[in-house]
Design a protein around this nucleic acid. Sequence first.
RNA 1: GCCCUCUUAGCUCAGCUGGAUAGAGCAACGGACUUCUAAUCCGUAGGCCGCAGGUUCGAGUCCUGCAGGGGGCGCCA
Length: 582
Amino acid sequence: MLPSPACCPLPLPAADAQDNSQTRDMKEIIRQAVDRALAEMQLPEKPDYVIEKPNDPAHGDLAVNAAFLLARVLRKRPALIAEDIAGRLQFGNDYVDSVEVAPNGFINFRISPRWSIGQLARVQSELERYGRGEELAGRKVIVEFVSSNPTGPLTIGHGRQAALGDVLCSLLAARGADVTREYYYNDAGNQMNILGHSLRARYVQRHDADFPFPENGYQGDYLLAIAEQFDNEHGDKYLPAAPDDAPDEQTLRIFREYAAERIRRMIDADLQNFRLRFDVWSLESRLYSEGRIDKLLELLREQELSYEKDGALWLRTSEFGDDEDRVIVKSTGEPTYFLPDLAYHAAKHERGFDEAVNLHGADHHGYVPRMRAGMKMLGYPAGWLRYLIHQMVSFTEDGEQIKMSTRSGKFVTLAELCREVGVDVARYFFVMRKADSHLVFDLDLARKQSNENPVYYCQYVHARICNLTPTAIEADVWDGDRSGWRDYKPGLLDKAEEVNLAVHMAEFPALVGRVAHALAPHLLTEYLEELAALFHAWYQKHRIVDSAAPELSRDRLYMADCARVVMANGLKILGITAPEKM
RNA sequence: GCCCUCUUAGCUCAGCUGGAUAGAGCAACGGACUUCUAAUCCGUAGGCCGCAGGUUCGAGUCCUGCAGGGGGCGCCA
């Protein structure tokens, strides 16, 4: 039995037909014309052709491959069929400038620049809503990410997941979903006991330097600070009577809870610093205190989904698609991680979510099949719980890979990384590669404040455009009131750079939809870099503000403002600032 | 050994449901600052898309095998 792939795209409804972004709308117009032509030809069946943008702009703006698909059925050369189709095409408007048949059989369409420029009106009418959509409206989605033991501050290892998860949520929300960002604190289980022992050791060491530190303990410096606080509050009250005395359960609990509480506060601060706001924090410990664990155990026993073997309690996951059965209660009587996680997801399901998405690092992907089996066992629909598994991150500096270790003391925590390169850069770098791929985080590049750094390259577009306003007012070509753009009709924009920019901006809403659907934020950074390139090229070549040509200046200021809106909306989804000055 | 994932320019990576001559950034080389901020732009060069088969009008994309990198195969979490 093969486990299905760890990551699947969300099963979204088809994109909204009302989405009248440039390509989509023009594709619809062309599709109607082609469909009519094909109907005239009395074919045995309608081919499932595609309309797409050619790689080479010399081929036109959009192309149709219908002739290839018909070649076999009609036993004719594609080019001849394409001629036949093209000869029958009729458009109800004058926005299709040309229809050409390529020698190989593609039918190429050229779209009027006026049409593309005209699409800018939508940017100005929607403003901050430009890029949003409704195809996920009414869908309740819970996204769980960054979840971890509260045993230390967030590390750079958490960074990618934090950024990916947050951007993913923003994308789903942008397309209408009702999104809940959830953090699951694994504040129960053995790791927390180790944490308790670690804090106790640090505390005792303050009074007895020779006191041994647990072999598998948490060595980070943050525990020294917490031990100091504990010492200040409690003095020598919890020191062992003899060095070898083990702490009783009551005492250990005090250390454990003290450490967990302080560390949760550290994590909260780290998240806030990373501009990440969770809607709900769920505590593993609460699953026990609310009796959910016992309830689940009882249910599993009743339905004979669990059985005892070798003194442990096993779950029959192999009957639901997993490779083997899994232990849920160890022979020691302690539950494994799996049991509370099942109870947690049962609780999620009860909370009424249409869909649950979990983000995890690649080191957890082996865990996915048993969770899937568990969900199936509990009767939840296949696909209700989805996993987005991302690969690990490595950091390079001076061309060499940095070892991530507590001892090296360099960039171990997310907060330190942000202090070094800034939150904007950190967030951007973490999402700029597709989740499936390993991410090489180049610290030298991240620190650079130049064109080599894609973050500044994008932000600079926004700053440049904002800076045009005072210039325009001073040149007396514009009053600086953006509200006037809403019904503005530019008539002088016809440069190639202007049309290219307009076409790209018109694709933004469809792109956001596609990125949300594919759970692939890196496509958004790619889009924004292209937007930036098109803007900078235009700006470099054509003067925007020219007191000798006020009308043209206004047209260009209008277009620049559209670019500002699109860039700002894109950066907003990424959680990155759009500076007015740089 | 089994499972997942990745392999595209010197480096880091795009490539949407299979479509035309495979793209971008960095690095290299050559140019553009009396300017609306050069944190910018223009140009040149750089490729058996890991290898071998298969599917078809057409494969970087789908299938199979092989090689290499990463991850996982606990009564850890």
